[in-house]
Design a protein around this nucleic acid. Structure first.
Lengths: 174, 174
DNA sequence: CGGTCCATGTAAACCGTTACATGATTAA
DNA sequence: TTAATCATGTAACGGTTTACATGGACCG
Protein backbone atom coordinates (compact mmCIF):
# COMPACT_ATOMS: atom_id res chain seq x y z
CA UNK A 1 0.00 0.00 0.00
CA UNK A 2 1.56 3.29 -1.05
CA UNK A 3 1.93 6.21 1.30
CA UNK A 4 -1.02 8.57 1.38
CA UNK A 5 -0.82 11.36 -1.12
CA UNK A 6 -1.83 14.77 0.12
CA UNK A 7 -0.30 17.32 -2.22
CA UNK A 8 -2.75 16.94 -5.11
CA UNK A 9 -5.72 17.42 -2.79
CA UNK A 10 -4.22 20.59 -1.42
CA UNK A 11 -3.76 21.86 -4.94
CA UNK A 12 -7.37 20.97 -5.69
CA UNK A 13 -8.46 22.94 -2.65
CA UNK A 14 -6.35 25.91 -3.62
CA UNK A 15 -7.76 25.91 -7.14
CA UNK A 16 -11.30 25.57 -5.89
CA UNK A 17 -10.92 28.71 -3.83
CA UNK A 18 -8.87 30.53 -6.48
CA UNK A 19 -9.92 29.36 -9.95
CA UNK A 20 -7.46 30.18 -12.69
CA UNK A 21 -4.24 30.31 -10.73
CA UNK A 22 -0.98 29.51 -12.48
CA UNK A 23 1.65 27.13 -11.21
CA UNK A 24 3.63 30.04 -9.88
CA UNK A 25 0.65 31.45 -8.03
CA UNK A 26 -0.19 28.08 -6.54
CA UNK A 27 3.37 27.86 -5.29
CA UNK A 28 2.98 31.23 -3.61
CA UNK A 29 -0.06 30.00 -1.73
CA UNK A 30 2.17 27.53 0.04
CA UNK A 31 4.47 30.21 1.33
CA UNK A 32 1.77 32.52 2.58
CA UNK A 33 -1.63 31.00 3.17
CA UNK A 34 -1.11 27.44 4.19
CA UNK A 35 2.58 27.57 4.96
CA UNK A 36 1.79 26.74 8.56
CA UNK A 37 0.37 23.40 7.54
CA UNK A 38 2.15 22.28 4.44
CA UNK A 39 5.18 23.23 2.39
CA UNK A 40 5.71 22.49 -1.29
CA UNK A 41 8.17 23.91 -3.75
CA UNK A 42 7.60 24.59 -7.41
CA UNK A 43 9.62 21.55 -8.43
CA UNK A 44 6.97 19.44 -6.77
CA UNK A 45 4.01 21.41 -7.99
CA UNK A 46 4.68 21.53 -11.73
CA UNK A 47 4.95 17.76 -12.17
CA UNK A 48 1.95 17.30 -9.90
CA UNK A 49 -0.10 19.66 -12.07
CA UNK A 50 0.78 17.61 -15.15
CA UNK A 51 -0.26 14.45 -13.41
CA UNK A 52 -3.53 16.02 -12.33
CA UNK A 53 -4.14 17.18 -15.90
CA UNK A 54 -3.58 13.64 -17.15
CA UNK A 55 -6.01 12.36 -14.53
CA UNK A 56 -8.56 14.99 -15.60
CA UNK A 57 -8.79 16.46 -12.12
CA UNK A 58 -7.96 19.88 -13.52
CA UNK A 59 -7.87 21.54 -16.92
CA UNK A 60 -5.82 24.38 -18.27
CA UNK A 61 -6.89 27.34 -20.28
CA UNK A 62 -3.98 29.29 -21.65
CA UNK A 63 -5.52 32.65 -22.23
CA UNK A 64 -4.53 34.92 -25.11
CA UNK A 65 -2.01 32.51 -26.55
CA UNK A 66 0.42 33.61 -23.90
CA UNK A 67 2.80 30.65 -23.72
CA UNK A 68 4.03 31.54 -20.28
CA UNK A 69 0.98 31.93 -18.12
CA UNK A 70 -0.95 28.72 -17.69
CA UNK A 71 -4.19 28.94 -15.74
CA UNK A 72 -5.69 25.89 -14.10
CA UNK A 73 -9.28 25.11 -13.20
CA UNK A 74 -10.97 22.25 -11.44
CA UNK A 75 -12.97 19.82 -13.54
CA UNK A 76 -16.21 18.37 -12.24
CA UNK A 77 -14.23 15.23 -11.55
CA UNK A 78 -11.67 17.20 -9.57
CA UNK A 79 -14.39 18.74 -7.43
CA UNK A 80 -15.77 15.37 -6.45
CA UNK A 81 -12.27 14.03 -5.76
CA UNK A 82 -11.70 16.92 -3.38
CA UNK A 83 -15.00 16.26 -1.63
CA UNK A 84 -14.11 12.59 -1.19
CA UNK A 85 -10.76 13.44 0.33
CA UNK A 86 -12.26 15.82 2.87
CA UNK A 87 -14.68 13.09 3.94
CA UNK A 88 -11.91 10.57 4.55
CA UNK A 89 -11.23 9.85 8.25
CA UNK A 90 -8.85 12.23 9.97
CA UNK A 91 -5.51 11.18 11.37
CA UNK A 92 -3.43 12.94 13.94
CA UNK A 93 -0.09 14.00 12.50
CA UNK A 94 3.24 13.28 14.11
CA UNK A 95 4.51 16.54 15.48
CA UNK A 96 8.11 16.58 14.31
CA UNK A 97 9.27 19.09 16.78
CA UNK A 98 13.02 19.75 17.17
CA UNK A 99 12.48 21.59 20.44
CA UNK A 100 10.83 18.62 22.09
CA UNK A 101 13.36 16.20 20.67
CA UNK A 102 16.34 18.10 21.95
CA UNK A 103 14.77 18.75 25.31
CA UNK A 104 13.98 15.07 25.59
CA UNK A 105 17.65 14.23 25.71
CA UNK A 106 18.58 16.61 28.51
CA UNK A 107 18.23 14.90 31.85
CA UNK A 108 19.52 17.44 34.34
CA UNK A 109 17.10 20.12 35.48
CA UNK A 110 19.98 22.55 35.96
CA UNK A 111 21.58 21.99 32.56
CA UNK A 112 22.03 25.50 31.12
CA UNK A 113 20.75 24.28 27.77
CA UNK A 114 17.26 23.89 29.23
CA UNK A 115 16.80 27.62 29.50
CA UNK A 116 18.63 28.24 26.25
CA UNK A 117 16.22 26.01 24.38
CA UNK A 118 13.23 27.57 26.10
CA UNK A 119 14.35 31.09 25.21
CA UNK A 120 15.04 30.19 21.61
CA UNK A 121 11.73 28.41 21.20
CA UNK A 122 9.92 31.34 22.77
CA UNK A 123 11.55 33.72 20.34
CA UNK A 124 10.60 31.61 17.34
CA UNK A 125 7.03 31.22 18.52
CA UNK A 126 6.64 34.95 19.07
CA UNK A 127 7.84 35.60 15.54
CA UNK A 128 5.34 33.19 14.12
CA UNK A 129 2.57 34.56 16.31
CA UNK A 130 3.22 38.07 15.03
CA UNK A 131 3.00 36.82 11.46
CA UNK A 132 -0.28 35.02 12.07
CA UNK A 133 -1.85 37.98 13.84
CA UNK A 134 -0.87 40.14 10.92
CA UNK A 135 -2.60 37.73 8.56
CA UNK A 136 -5.68 37.73 10.75
CA UNK A 137 -5.88 41.51 10.82
CA UNK A 138 -5.33 41.65 7.08
CA UNK A 139 -7.75 38.96 6.00
CA UNK A 140 -10.54 39.04 8.57
CA UNK A 141 -11.11 42.63 9.44
CA UNK A 142 -14.88 42.35 9.14
CA UNK A 143 -17.51 39.75 9.90
CA UNK A 144 -18.43 39.27 6.26
CA UNK A 145 -15.02 37.92 5.35
CA UNK A 146 -15.19 35.52 8.26
CA UNK A 147 -18.52 34.19 7.03
CA UNK A 148 -17.23 33.74 3.49
CA UNK A 149 -14.02 31.94 4.39
CA UNK A 150 -15.02 30.30 7.61
CA UNK A 151 -12.62 27.35 7.46
CA UNK A 152 -9.68 29.59 6.75
CA UNK A 153 -10.69 31.82 9.63
CA UNK A 154 -11.00 28.84 11.96
CA UNK A 155 -7.61 27.38 11.27
CA UNK A 156 -5.97 30.77 11.54
CA UNK A 157 -7.46 31.40 14.96
CA UNK A 158 -6.63 27.84 15.90
CA UNK A 159 -2.98 28.32 14.99
CA UNK A 160 -2.89 31.56 16.96
CA UNK A 161 -4.48 29.91 19.96
CA UNK A 162 -2.04 27.01 19.73
CA UNK A 163 1.00 29.25 19.67
CA UNK A 164 -0.27 31.45 22.46
CA UNK A 165 -0.78 28.33 24.51
CA UNK A 166 2.74 27.18 23.83
CA UNK A 167 4.20 30.53 24.78
CA UNK A 168 2.15 30.58 27.98
CA UNK A 169 3.42 27.12 28.82
CA UNK A 170 7.02 28.14 28.20
CA UNK A 171 6.57 31.09 30.54
CA UNK A 172 4.97 28.93 33.17
CA UNK A 173 7.95 26.63 33.60
CA UNK A 174 10.67 29.19 34.16
CA UNK B 1 23.22 21.19 0.33
CA UNK B 2 21.50 18.05 1.54
CA UNK B 3 18.47 18.12 3.76
CA UNK B 4 19.15 18.09 7.49
CA UNK B 5 19.35 14.63 8.94
CA UNK B 6 17.61 14.09 12.24
CA UNK B 7 17.19 10.36 12.71
CA UNK B 8 20.81 9.53 13.66
CA UNK B 9 20.80 12.20 16.36
CA UNK B 10 17.61 10.81 17.83
CA UNK B 11 19.20 7.39 17.93
CA UNK B 12 22.24 8.87 19.63
CA UNK B 13 20.01 10.45 22.23
CA UNK B 14 18.11 7.23 22.81
CA UNK B 15 21.35 5.30 23.25
CA UNK B 16 22.76 7.91 25.58
CA UNK B 17 19.80 7.51 27.88
CA UNK B 18 19.62 3.74 27.43
CA UNK B 19 23.09 2.33 26.81
CA UNK B 20 23.12 -1.15 25.34
CA UNK B 21 19.81 -1.17 23.54
CA UNK B 22 19.37 -3.40 20.52
CA UNK B 23 17.95 -2.31 17.20
CA UNK B 24 14.61 -3.78 18.16
CA UNK B 25 14.56 -1.93 21.46
CA UNK B 26 15.49 1.33 19.79
CA UNK B 27 12.60 0.82 17.41
CA UNK B 28 10.25 0.37 20.35
CA UNK B 29 11.32 3.69 21.79
CA UNK B 30 9.83 5.35 18.73
CA UNK B 31 6.44 3.81 19.29
CA UNK B 32 6.18 4.63 22.96
CA UNK B 33 8.45 7.34 24.27
CA UNK B 34 9.01 9.79 21.48
CA UNK B 35 6.25 8.67 19.18
CA UNK B 36 4.60 12.05 19.63
CA UNK B 37 7.58 13.76 18.06
CA UNK B 38 9.07 11.37 15.59
CA UNK B 39 8.29 8.08 13.93
CA UNK B 40 10.76 5.62 12.50
CA UNK B 41 10.35 2.02 11.50
CA UNK B 42 12.89 -0.74 11.91
CA UNK B 43 13.65 -0.71 8.21
CA UNK B 44 15.01 2.78 8.67
CA UNK B 45 16.79 2.10 11.92
CA UNK B 46 18.87 -0.94 11.04
CA UNK B 47 20.61 0.66 8.06
CA UNK B 48 21.07 3.83 10.07
CA UNK B 49 22.77 1.88 12.86
CA UNK B 50 25.18 0.39 10.33
CA UNK B 51 26.00 3.82 9.00
CA UNK B 52 26.56 5.15 12.50
CA UNK B 53 28.84 2.22 13.23
CA UNK B 54 30.86 3.00 10.12
CA UNK B 55 31.09 6.63 11.22
CA UNK B 56 32.23 5.53 14.69
CA UNK B 57 29.38 7.31 16.40
CA UNK B 58 28.36 4.08 18.11
CA UNK B 59 29.91 0.69 18.77
CA UNK B 60 28.38 -2.72 19.23
CA UNK B 61 29.14 -5.33 21.81
CA UNK B 62 27.48 -8.62 21.05
CA UNK B 63 27.31 -10.25 24.44
CA UNK B 64 27.61 -13.98 24.99
CA UNK B 65 28.09 -14.79 21.31
CA UNK B 66 24.39 -14.45 20.85
CA UNK B 67 24.15 -13.72 17.17
CA UNK B 68 20.69 -12.22 17.45
CA UNK B 69 20.93 -9.60 20.11
CA UNK B 70 23.21 -6.75 19.17
CA UNK B 71 23.76 -4.08 21.80
CA UNK B 72 24.84 -0.59 20.85
CA UNK B 73 26.71 2.03 22.83
CA UNK B 74 27.75 5.60 22.16
CA UNK B 75 31.39 6.27 21.44
CA UNK B 76 33.08 9.38 22.79
CA UNK B 77 32.76 10.74 19.29
CA UNK B 78 29.06 10.00 19.26
CA UNK B 79 28.57 11.86 22.52
CA UNK B 80 30.16 14.99 21.16
CA UNK B 81 28.17 14.72 17.93
CA UNK B 82 24.98 14.61 19.98
CA UNK B 83 26.04 17.64 21.99
CA UNK B 84 26.78 19.58 18.82
CA UNK B 85 23.38 18.77 17.37
CA UNK B 86 21.54 19.94 20.47
CA UNK B 87 23.43 23.23 20.30
CA UNK B 88 22.44 23.86 16.67
CA UNK B 89 19.83 26.62 16.22
CA UNK B 90 16.24 25.54 16.56
CA UNK B 91 13.76 25.66 13.72
CA UNK B 92 10.00 25.66 13.90
CA UNK B 93 8.55 22.62 12.19
CA UNK B 94 5.80 22.71 9.62
CA UNK B 95 2.72 21.36 11.27
CA UNK B 96 1.35 18.96 8.71
CA UNK B 97 -2.10 18.87 10.08
CA UNK B 98 -4.88 17.18 8.06
CA UNK B 99 -7.59 18.77 10.21
CA UNK B 100 -6.42 22.28 9.42
CA UNK B 101 -5.90 21.48 5.77
CA UNK B 102 -9.39 20.09 5.29
CA UNK B 103 -11.02 22.84 7.29
CA UNK B 104 -9.14 25.38 5.23
CA UNK B 105 -11.05 24.36 2.13
CA UNK B 106 -14.52 24.68 3.63
CA UNK B 107 -15.85 28.15 3.09
CA UNK B 108 -19.40 28.02 4.37
CA UNK B 109 -19.91 28.42 8.11
CA UNK B 110 -22.97 26.20 7.95
CA UNK B 111 -21.39 23.38 5.99
CA UNK B 112 -22.16 20.24 8.01
CA UNK B 113 -18.60 19.04 7.54
CA UNK B 114 -17.38 21.80 9.83
CA UNK B 115 -18.89 20.15 12.87
CA UNK B 116 -18.02 16.69 11.62
CA UNK B 117 -14.37 17.60 11.39
CA UNK B 118 -14.44 19.26 14.79
CA UNK B 119 -16.01 16.24 16.44
CA UNK B 120 -13.59 13.83 14.82
CA UNK B 121 -10.58 15.92 15.74
CA UNK B 122 -11.84 16.23 19.29
CA UNK B 123 -12.17 12.50 19.58
CA UNK B 124 -8.66 11.90 18.28
CA UNK B 125 -7.18 14.49 20.59
CA UNK B 126 -8.94 13.03 23.61
CA UNK B 127 -7.54 9.61 22.79
CA UNK B 128 -4.05 10.99 22.56
CA UNK B 129 -4.50 13.00 25.73
CA UNK B 130 -5.51 9.90 27.64
CA UNK B 131 -2.41 8.10 26.39
CA UNK B 132 -0.11 10.92 27.41
CA UNK B 133 -1.67 11.26 30.85
CA UNK B 134 -1.19 7.55 31.35
CA UNK B 135 2.46 7.90 30.46
CA UNK B 136 2.79 10.81 32.86
CA UNK B 137 1.25 8.88 35.73
CA UNK B 138 3.40 5.88 34.95
CA UNK B 139 6.75 7.60 34.53
CA UNK B 140 6.62 10.60 36.83
CA UNK B 141 4.82 9.53 39.93
CA UNK B 142 7.40 11.08 42.24
CA UNK B 143 9.56 14.18 42.28
CA UNK B 144 12.77 12.22 42.04
CA UNK B 145 11.96 10.82 38.62
CA UNK B 146 11.12 14.29 37.41
CA UNK B 147 14.50 15.57 38.55
CA UNK B 148 16.33 12.73 36.87
CA UNK B 149 14.60 12.99 33.51
CA UNK B 150 13.71 16.62 33.45
CA UNK B 151 13.68 17.07 29.69
CA UNK B 152 11.44 14.08 29.19
CA UNK B 153 9.11 15.38 31.88
CA UNK B 154 9.00 18.80 30.28
CA UNK B 155 8.09 17.65 26.81
CA UNK B 156 5.46 15.29 28.16
CA UNK B 157 3.74 18.05 30.11
CA UNK B 158 4.14 20.31 27.10
CA UNK B 159 2.40 17.83 24.85
CA UNK B 160 -0.40 17.45 27.39
CA UNK B 161 -0.79 21.19 27.69
CA UNK B 162 -0.81 21.56 23.92
CA UNK B 163 -3.54 18.99 23.44
CA UNK B 164 -5.64 20.35 26.28
CA UNK B 165 -5.38 23.75 24.65
CA UNK B 166 -6.51 22.37 21.33
CA UNK B 167 -9.47 20.59 22.90
CA UNK B 168 -10.46 23.73 24.76
CA UNK B 169 -10.29 25.69 21.52
CA UNK B 170 -12.43 23.13 19.72
CA UNK B 171 -15.03 23.39 22.47
CA UNK B 172 -14.93 27.17 22.39
CA UNK B 173 -16.01 27.45 18.76
CA UNK B 174 -19.14 25.31 18.85
C1' DC C 1 21.37 42.73 -30.37
C1' DG C 2 22.74 41.31 -25.53
C1' DG C 3 21.74 40.59 -21.00
C1' DT C 4 18.68 39.77 -17.22
C1' DC C 5 14.56 38.18 -15.22
C1' DC C 6 11.05 34.95 -14.71
C1' DA C 7 7.73 30.96 -15.17
C1' DT C 8 8.26 26.56 -16.01
C1' DG C 9 10.58 22.33 -16.12
C1' DT C 10 14.09 18.45 -15.00
C1' DA C 11 17.68 15.68 -12.45
C1' DA C 12 19.81 13.70 -8.59
C1' DA C 13 20.10 12.61 -3.88
C1' DC C 14 18.01 11.38 0.17
C1' DC C 15 14.06 10.22 3.33
C1' DG C 16 10.31 7.25 4.82
C1' DT C 17 6.94 3.64 4.16
C1' DT C 18 5.46 -0.81 2.78
C1' DA C 19 6.28 -5.24 1.76
C1' DC C 20 9.12 -9.04 1.50
C1' DA C 21 13.27 -12.00 2.93
C1' DT C 22 16.60 -14.45 6.03
C1' DG C 23 18.24 -17.08 9.60
C1' DA C 24 18.03 -18.35 14.26
C1' DT C 25 15.13 -19.43 18.43
C1' DT C 26 11.16 -21.29 20.50
C1' DA C 27 7.02 -24.09 20.89
C1' DA C 28 3.95 -27.74 19.83
C1' DT D 1 10.73 -32.11 13.51
C1' DT D 2 7.87 -28.97 11.90
C1' DA D 3 5.78 -24.69 12.45
C1' DA D 4 5.58 -20.28 14.32
C1' DT D 5 7.91 -16.37 16.07
C1' DC D 6 11.33 -12.97 16.31
C1' DA D 7 15.37 -9.83 15.35
C1' DT D 8 17.44 -8.29 11.66
C1' DG D 9 17.94 -7.10 7.02
C1' DT D 10 16.66 -5.73 2.01
C1' DA D 11 13.99 -4.01 -2.03
C1' DA D 12 10.91 -1.08 -4.30
C1' DC D 13 8.29 2.90 -4.57
C1' DG D 14 6.93 7.46 -3.96
C1' DG D 15 7.72 12.03 -1.63
C1' DT D 16 10.63 16.09 -0.72
C1' DT D 17 14.53 18.98 -1.26
C1' DT D 18 18.26 21.02 -3.75
C1' DA D 19 20.34 22.38 -7.66
C1' DC D 20 20.45 23.03 -12.34
C1' DA D 21 18.22 23.85 -17.12
C1' DT D 22 15.19 25.98 -20.72
C1' DG D 23 13.03 29.34 -23.24
C1' DG D 24 10.37 33.36 -23.71
C1' DA D 25 9.69 38.35 -22.09
C1' DC D 26 11.47 42.58 -20.98
C1' DC D 27 14.91 46.18 -20.97
C1' DG D 28 19.23 48.35 -22.02
Amino acid sequence: MPKKRVLPYIILGILKQNPGLSGKEITEQFTCEIGEFWKASHSQIYPELKKMLADKWIEKRSKEDNAKEIDYFLTLNGKSVLKEWIDQPLELPVNRDPFSLKMFFINDKDDPRVNELIDEEKRLLKEQLAHLKMREALLFDDEKRIQQNYGHYLILTRAISRIEGQIAWLKSIK
